[in-house]
């Protein structure tokens, strides 16, 4: 099949990025950031609370953890719901025991259906991050613009109403955005975005409204990715978290404060046999001097005071 000659034309082949969201910048050439009490690594744990409706279609873009059986799929519905009934309480107890504050990406449907979970989060002074309506409401390029606007405003307004929290962060479901998503979340007063996996540190992110910050929410150190999608052994998962920490901890000596993002899904990590592995990994981390367990908003505030 013949290729049009335009295929060999490169209109944005020039210095910097091929888009205007952010500037090209090398992570290791930036002014070092100093965390409170001269901590070396900010530990940012994000257990996501997600509701998968049983009539999940997953079209045209499927969410992570998409169902794979015909309706009515009790098997997958109830397996995901396990995280909201049982798994999340194991995660909370573990983080409480270790004195770790968390940021919780939350579908607004979770807050509406299970307000007790919002109470539990608030009681701990944890942060809630906007995470869309529910897992059947993905954002993607080509979706109706008004519908996306409604998803963003509805989910953020619901979380604000039920939790009383400002909702300063946003994590798109499956880290999937349309080209409008950053504008839409910025116009709702969100300050930081967790979707872009290209850095170890926060950086400024432009929208047509006010500027956002991109926060380095992990794509890889993620229980669902490693254990559910890649089907790795739990012992490998623990080792990867330790190796991730060791590298960042070592680099912090030369390059300034680092951020260790650990993304959790209680429907994956909250099973009895798995929580013990997470406990091992987190105990290893907090046993080091210079670890600051913080929310995304706290980390960003500290960063912006120095580099905003």
């Amino acid at each position: 099949m013949a290729l049009p000659n335009e295929y060999l034309k490169y209109p944005i082949r020039k210095y910097g990025m091929d888009q205007d969201y952010y500037d090209w910048s090398i992570t290791f050439r930036r002014t070092p950031v100093v965390w409170p009490n001269k901590a070396r690594v900010a530990l940012w744990v994000t257990p996501a609370l997600q509701w998968y409706p049983m009539d999940l279609e997953g079209k045209p873009v499927a969410p992570p953890g998409m169902f794979n059986r015909p309706y009515p799929d009790y098997r997958n519905y109830s397996h995901r719901d396990y995280g909201l009934r049982v798994g999340v309480f194991r995660v909370m107890k573990l983080l409480d025991d270790l004195g770790i504050k968390a940021s919780v990406p939350m579908n607004s449907a979770v807050a509406e259906r299970y307000p007790v979970l919002v109470e539990e989060v608030n009681k701990r002074d944890w942060e809630i991050i906007g995470h869309g309506v529910h897992m059947g409401r993905m954002h993607y390029e080509g979706m109706d613009e008004n519908l996306e606007k409604e998803f963003v405003s509805e989910s953020i307004a619901t979380l604000r109403r039920i939790s009383g929290q400002p909702i300063r962060g946003w994590l798109s479901i499956g880290k999937s955005e349309s080209s409008k998503t950053p504008d839409l979340v910025a116009s709702q007063g969100v300050e930081y975005l967790c979707d872009w996996a290209n850095d170890d540190l926060p950086y400024e992110f432009r929208t047509s409204k006010k500027a956002l910050w991109s926060m380095p929410h992990t794509l890889e150190i993620d229980d669902r990715h490693l254990l559910f999608e890649l089907k790795q052994r739990e012992s490998d998962y623990v080792q990867q978290i330790k190796d991730q920490f060791d590298t960042l901890y070592r680099e912090s000596e030369q390059y300034g404060g680092r951020i260790l993002s650990i993304a959790l899904h209680p429907w994956v990590i909250g099973h009895p046999y798995r929580i013990r592995y997470l406990a091992e990994a987190l105990r290893y981390i907090v046993a080091h001097d210079g670890v600051w367990a913080a929310t995304g908003a706290d980390i960003l505030d500290t960063f912006r005071k120095q580099q905003g």
């Binding site: 090209w24 045209p60 996996a197 850095d199």
Partner: peptide
């Protein structure tokens, strides 16, 4: 896998130039 902009695909690869290569 996703209609462009597939920001997960794009940003995970951009990580190599900003951070991974230097390591």
């Amino acid at each position: 896998a996703r209609p462009a902009p597939d920001i997960q695909f794009y940003s995970s690869r951009d990580y190599g130039n900003r951070a991974g290569l230097w390591r």
